[in-house]
Amino acid sequence: MRIIRFEKEGSAQLAAVNDQDQIFALQQSDFLALIHEADRLEITPLELVSKAIEGIEALHDQIDQLQLLVPIEAPEVWAAGVTYERSRDARNYEATEGRLDASTFYDKVYDAVRPEIFFKSTAARTVGPGGEVQLRSDSVWQVPEPELGLVLSAAGKIIGYTIGNDMSCRDIEGENPLYLPQAKVWKRSCSIGPAIRLAEAVDNPYNFQITSHIYRDGEKAVEGTANTNQLKRKLEELTEYLIRDNELFEGTVLLTGTCIVPPNEFTLAHGDRIEIEITGIGTLVNHVVSAGN
């Protein structure tokens, strides 16, 4: 079962989407209200949704006909890095100017007990499905990073799964690791959506198939696939380090790292379209605009 938000007559409407892509309107106005109601009734969110849509008629709209909103206005978005071997290799390439035989701190963090976790975005900097992600004006090597996102409770419990795009400036990060915040955080540098799959509706989070396409001038420029079974670290391991001595806000999203990296000669350009699909969640589509647009 997936949860979406869409605009209806100027207001946000919450809805459930079953595996047959039928859409059912819900009474709650946002995802956390749904979670709170389930907690109050001492049932799971999936049980609450299943009871709420039992016997009611599905909407006549298709998902692509709705004006989708970000599925949750996450107060904070965090991200984990170097959680896949492919990501480690890409970071090494940036840091060593292509000398792949050179060992770096990325190798160390890949094998370390402590994972890399960094602050990525806020609600104001995050866009939803169909929104525009923005290029940074002082970077010439920028890429999307398709990632599985964890929607967390204040205690760090995984309550849902979504799709995230962790926009990244490879040249800035490669120049100096201390520049990581500038390589990761700027206006409209993150997107999440189009839906949240309830945690109880996922049998195995280590079997999500991730597919990414980048289109330029209507032609496919880059494509890649990965599976969360390639993750080096467990999801609970990442969340445990995020909440350690930290105040976590309810509805925080943690992006879990990427295994899909475009060719080294590729950089995003104004007008590109990014599509990230994760089986069971949906397809997150965003368009790329230059700084200042």
Rank of each mutant, 00 (worst) to 15 (best):
Q13C: 11
P71W: 10
A58G: 05
A74T: 15
G55D: 05
T44R: 11
H60M: 09
A33Y: 01
A12S: 15
V82S: 01
L41T: 01
F24K: 02
L48E: 02
R40N: 03
L41D: 04
Q62E: 14
G81P: 05
E47F: 03
L48R: 11
L26V: 04
T44V: 08
Q27W: 03
L66I: 07
Q13S: 13
D39W: 03
R40I: 00
G81W: 00
Q20W: 06
L69S: 11
E54K: 11
Q13R: 14
H60I: 13
I72C: 07
L32I: 15
G81Q: 02
Q22K: 14
Q22P: 01
D30E: 15
A80T: 11
E42I: 03
A16L: 03
I63K: 14
I56Y: 00
Q28F: 05
L14D: 08
W78R: 12
Q67M: 11
L66S: 01
P45C: 03
D21T: 05
D61P: 00
A33G: 15
L26F: 05
D64E: 15
E42S: 12
V70M: 15
L68C: 10
V77M: 09
S50I: 02
D64Q: 12
D21I: 00
Q65P: 00
H36F: 02
A80C: 15
G81S: 07
E54V: 00
K51W: 03
A12W: 04
E47T: 07
V49N: 07
F31Q: 10
E37Q: 13
L59W: 01
E54R: 06
E47N: 08
F24I: 09
E42Y: 04
Q27F: 06
A25V: 14
L14I: 04
T44A: 09
L41S: 05
A15N: 08
I23H: 00
H60A: 14
A38R: 09
V70S: 15
E42F: 05
I23D: 01
T44G: 11
D30V: 07
E37T: 09
Q65H: 07
L48W: 04
Q67W: 02
A33W: 02
L41I: 01
E54D: 13
A38I: 06
S50H: 07
L66Y: 03
V17Y: 01
L34S: 10
L26I: 02
D30G: 13
F31C: 08
I43K: 10
V70Y: 00
Q65A: 12
A79M: 14
F31N: 09
L59G: 10
V82P: 00
L41N: 04
F24V: 06
D19P: 00
L48P: 02
A12C: 09
D21V: 00
L59Y: 01
P75Q: 14
I72E: 06
K51L: 07
Q27V: 06
A80G: 14
Q22D: 13
E54L: 08
A79P: 07
A52L: 05
A79G: 15
A74Q: 09
P75C: 08
H36N: 11
H60W: 03
G55Y: 04
Q20S: 12
R40A: 09
A79S: 15
D61W: 08
Q62V: 00
E57N: 11
W78V: 10
I63V: 15
I35T: 02
E47I: 02
L46V: 06
L41F: 04
